[in-house]
Simulated scan of single mutants.
Amino acid sequence: MTERTPTPMDLLDFPGAAELIAAGGVEPPSAEAVDGAWAAVARAAREEERATMPATPPTQLTSRRVRRPRRLLVAAAAVAAIATGAVAYPVLDMGGEPAATASASEFFEGMAEVAEDAPATTPAYWKVRVETDNQDDGKRTDTNYFDREGRVWSVDADGTVHEPPAGEEGKVKKWPVGKKWLTWPQLEKLPTDEKTLAAHFPKDPNTRFDQVTIMLEDSPAGPELRAALFRILADTPGMKLVGDVRDSKGRAGVAVEITQKSWVRLGGGGGGGSEVTLHTRDRYVIAPDTGLLLETTHKTLGKNTTTPADRYTWLEVGPAERVE
């Protein structure tokens, strides 16, 4: 027997469908309404997931979360909520700091589940190929490999491999975590519970955000560690979900943004000069099927600012068995 193709009325077979049809054309919903509707979808899906999980004793549950298909009814309810504008959305309280939108938090929680499902690997090398475009360096592509000791190999566009220099002159790849810079083996010793892991990062949300995203960009963090990093971002204030975009290479992804404020003192050494406030907007494009970062851009905002955004496009980040 072949499956029947659902008709439009099949898809609208949910409570409130008649009211939705009768409403006809309505004004486009606000961004807040859309954010809230997607948050409602995620919350309803989680409640459904809990209701359908087998009654397994706690001692037999694994740390891996069970992922199940979302029913059409959940999505349909969200459509109805958006169409009528009748949706209330939660805001995360971060002790007075600007809160992350509910939809951004839900997105990062989803990316944590994707990260958990990725296979664990124990490669000999980690490969990073990134295209950089900024005012200082112009546009260039760098290909680097590093081993578990942190030694770095670079590969030219023509395939020429540059061995890491011996002794103290050799570069060592590390990542900032709090006040420390950790090597690949040290990353593997970090806790994977998000609350315990968060304690290793700075309390300042901006600095914590910067360090977490640096690790997500190009570190060899394992699936459970990446999942914990995404969950830390879910609790980071100021994040906003932009939605579906394409990066500079045309790859489809989901963008999130954060606008941060910093201060720079110009002129007058020894504490003199004037203090200038800068606002920067950082955008991160993430592949929703893998949780890998595709592209990051950093833009200084202001009426008198014409500086183009710094762009880092992550062309390849992952395990490798040899340098080539």
Rank of each mutant, 00 (worst) to 15 (best):
R281H: 02
V256T: 15
G271K: 04
E257G: 01
I258H: 14
F209Y: 14
M239A: 08
T213K: 10
K249G: 14
I232G: 09
V212M: 09
S219D: 08
S219T: 04
M239E: 07
K249V: 03
T280L: 01
L278W: 06
R246W: 01
R231C: 03
V245S: 00
R246T: 15
V245N: 02
R246G: 02
L225M: 05
G270Y: 05
S262D: 08
E257M: 03
L266T: 14
Q260C: 00
I232V: 12
G267A: 13
A227Y: 12
D210I: 04
T259P: 05
T259E: 15
M215G: 11
A221D: 03
R226M: 06
A255Q: 14
T259D: 15
L216Y: 09
P223A: 08
V264D: 02
D235I: 00
R251C: 08
Q211S: 07
L216N: 03
D210A: 15
G222N: 14
K261I: 11
F230W: 12
G268Q: 11
M215E: 11
I232R: 02
V276P: 00
K249N: 05
R226F: 07
I232H: 04
S219R: 02
F230P: 04
G269D: 08
S274G: 13
T213D: 02
E224R: 13
E224S: 11
V242S: 01
A228S: 11
P220Q: 06
L278F: 15
A234Y: 07
Q260M: 10
G222D: 14
G222V: 03
G273C: 06
E224Q: 12
S219Y: 09
T236S: 07
I232C: 07
E275G: 02
V254A: 06
R231P: 00
E257D: 14
D235Q: 15
G272Q: 14
D282C: 03
G243F: 03
E257Y: 02
T280Q: 07
V242C: 00
T277M: 10
T259K: 15
G272D: 13
M239H: 12
T236R: 03
V212N: 02
G243E: 01
R251I: 13
G250C: 10
V242F: 06
K261T: 15
G269Q: 14
D244N: 04
M215N: 09
G270W: 10
D282R: 15
P220K: 09
G268K: 13
V242G: 01
